[in-house]
C-alpha cells in the first residue's frame, strides 16, 4: 500500500478492461485557461457496463465525463490534451464535428432539464433532429417504456414536460436521451436532485439500461456506485502544484475498489474518512 498517491508524480496503475471497450479515454491533461483541471487519467468505458466515477468535490469527475461527448467545447477556455477512441476514431480528431459526436454519445444532466414542450415532443425531439424516418410514435413509446416512465405518463403525453415531478422529469430526460439509440449514455450525478424513492427508480433503470447501452456515471454517492456500477474509477485531487488538479487514483471492478482497494487514498475515501 502506498501513500504516494496524493503527490504530483503519481500515475494510476492501468486498468485492464475485461470486455470490449466502447470509449477508450486517455486523458493527459484538461485545462480551463491556465488551470489544469485533470491530469493523467486513463479511463476506458466498457460496452454494456456501468462505469462509475467517484471522488471528492472538485476532482474533475464531471469534467472528465463532459469531455466524453465534447460538451466542454462550449466553454471557451477549455483545452483537451489526449485522445478518446470511439470505434477507432478519436472524437477529438481534427475532422470530427462535436455536434455529430453528441448524437452518438448522449447525456443526462445533474438537474432534470426537460424542454418546455409536451412530454411526447420532448422524447421526439432528438428523433426529429436527426430526420428520423419511421414510426416516430413507436420509438417514443419504446423510449418511455425503457426509461420506466411509460405508466406515469401514458395518459398525458400532451401535458408539459415541466409539469412532472423531479424524479419523473429525470426519467423523461433519460427517455429523451435514449430515444435516438445512442451508443453511450453519460450520466452526470443524475440522482443528486432527486428524493430517495426517485433515486432508487433511476438506479434500477441504470442497471436495466446497460443491457442496451454503455453507461458512464458520475456520482457523489458511494452507495450508489456499489449498487449500480460494474467498474469504478476513483479520482483524487492533487494540490501539490498549487491548483486543484484531479487525477485517476485507482480504477477496478467496483467490488475490488470498495473491498480491497490498493491505494491508501482510495481506502480512506471509501471508508468515508474524507469526502
Amino acid at each position: 500500500m502506498t501513500s504516494l498517491s496524493d503527490t504530483g508524480e503519481f500515475i494510476a496503475k492501468k486498468y485492464e478492461p475485461k470486455g470490449p471497450v466502447v470509449l477508450d479515454c486517455q486523458i493527459n491533461n484538461i485545462y480551463y485557461g491556465n488551470f489544469r483541471a485533470v491530469r493523467d487519467s486513463h479511463v476506458p468505458i466498457e460496452k454494456n457496463k456501468v462505469t462509475g466515477f467517484i471522488g471528492p468535490s472538485g476532482c474533475g469527475k464531471s469534467t472528465v465525463l463532459r469531455s466524453m461527448n465534447r460538451m466542454n467545447d462550449l466553454i471557451e477556455s477549455f483545452r483537451f490534451d489526449g485522445s478518446i477512441q470511439y470505434h477507432s476514431n478519436d472524437i477529438y480528431g481534427k475532422k470530427v464535428d462535436p455536434v455529430v459526436v453528441r448524437r452518438y454519445i448522449g447525456m443526462v444532466f445533474q438537474l432534470p432539464n426537460p424542454f418546455s414542450m409536451s412530454i411526447y415532443d420532448n422524447v421526439a425531439f432528438g428523433l426529429r433532429l436527426n430526420g428520423f424516418k419511421g414510426d416516430e410514435e413507436e420509438m417514443v413509446v419504446q423510449a418511455l417504456k425503457r426509461a420506466a416512465i411509460w405508466d406515469d405518463v401514458k395518459d398525458k403525453l400532451k401535458n408539459s414536460g415541466l409539469s412532472l415531478s423531479g424524479g419523473q422529469q429525470q426519467r423523461l430526460c433519460i427517455a429523451r436521451a435514449i430515444a435516438t439509440e445512442p451508443d453511450v449514455l453519460l450520466m452526470d450525478e443524475p440522482c443528486s436532485a432527486l428524493d430517495p424513492i426517485a433515486t432508487r427508480q433511476v438506479e434500477e433503470l441504470m442497471v436495466e439500461l446497460k443491457e442496451h447501452y454503455s453507461v458512464a456515471l458520475v456520482t457523489h454517492n458511494m452507495q450508489q456506485a456499489t449498487r449500480v456500477a460494474d467498474v469504478t474509477a476513483f479520482l483524487g485531487v492533487d494540490i501539490s502544484q498549487g491548483g486543484r488538479t484531479g487525477y485517476l487514483v485507482e480504477m477496478d471492478d467496483t467490488q475490488k475498489i470498495f473491498e480491497d482497494p490498493q491505494q491508501l487514498l482510495t481506502q480512506q475515501y471509501v471508508r468515508g474518512e474524507f469526502s
Binding site: L74, R102, F109, N113, F115, F125, N130, A177
Partner: peptide, 8 residues
C-alpha cells in the same frame, strides 16, 4: 445544455 447534449 440539453439541446447541445442531444447533438443540436
Amino acid at each position: 445544455d440539453a439541446a447541445y447534449g442531444m447533438g443540436c
